[in-house]
Amino acid sequence: MKVFISWSGERSRQVAELLNVWIQCVLQAVDPWLSTKDIDKGSLWFSEITNQLSSTQNGIVCLTKANLSNPWILFESGALAKGLTSNRVYIFLVDLKPNDVKDPLAQFNHTMPSREGVFQLIRSINNGLGEKALRENIIANVYETYWPQFEKGFKEILSNTPEEEIKEERPKEDLLNEILYSVRAIDKRLRKVEDTEQKISDSVKPRYLNFKSDSNIEFGEMGDRPIEDLELSVHLFNFLKSQKINTVKDIRNVDTTKLDNVALKHELIRVLTRLINLNKEN
């Protein structure tokens, strides 16, 4: 499986190169593609990158404070998002928090550089390997073996690269002139997803959409973890915070009937299901 790793800026580049090597240690069936490593001399770099983007179904975007609104990052994310129902785009938050990310990147899966966050990223990629996927117990053991290597390398990168501030947004007119193509491509795919979600919501039983969290649900050791460790969209993260949901176990107190957005309602139910399954596995 090919995984395209997108970057822009020095800190982002170093994290991308770390992921490029480290992921191959954990998942040997994965073939990461990184522009700084894999473009042959004499090749037209833009043409080569475009070809790779068009043939890749998984992408990791190394997002930092410096490249948060970078047109090139938005272009590559938009290209990766083609056929959003089958492609997976992971936004790796190098030095950011989920609420720092605005649309359209806020619509994608966010990965925090924590032990749990990176493990969920690896699990998601592994699940897409089909017959080459590692069994759950094997991937857990392999991950525990290689996590210290990633953690050390990542901390060294943050320590050795200059601290960056979130750049102020440029005027909308100026930014739109540069990224209009990317935004249109992403918006088009997102509209298709929203239409699909609406069709699903019209066909499922009201009992499912009126799901209420069960106060008897147990999350085991994960219960005390902050919700920042979960892979949540910015919209769901902000909703939970507005409801004073700070830890995993607090999610039991959420009533999804208060959610007007069908897509967020489904996302919350998927999160609950995943947490329950993880607790059973442990």
Rank of each mutant, 00 (worst) to 15 (best):
M1F: 02
V3P: 05
W7D: 05
E10G: 07
D40S: 14
K41E: 14
Q57C: 14
C62W: 05
N67D: 11
F75E: 06
A79F: 05
A81P: 03
S86H: 14
Y90K: 02
Y90P: 03
V94Q: 06
V101N: 03
S114A: 10
R115W: 03
E116F: 08
I125R: 00
N126L: 00
G128I: 09
L129S: 11
K132Y: 12
K132C: 04
R135W: 11
I138D: 14
I139H: 02
G153M: 00
R170L: 15
R170V: 15
N177V: 07
I179T: 02
L180W: 03
R184V: 10
I186C: 11
K192R: 04
Q198L: 14
I200L: 09
S203V: 09
K205E: 10
P206Q: 07
P206N: 00
F211P: 05
K212S: 07
S215I: 11
E221Q: 15
E228F: 01
S233H: 14
V234H: 04
V234C: 06
F239S: 11
Q243E: 12
V248R: 00
I251Y: 09
T256Q: 03
H266S: 07
R274C: 11
L275T: 12
L275K: 04
L275C: 01
K280Q: 04
K280F: 00
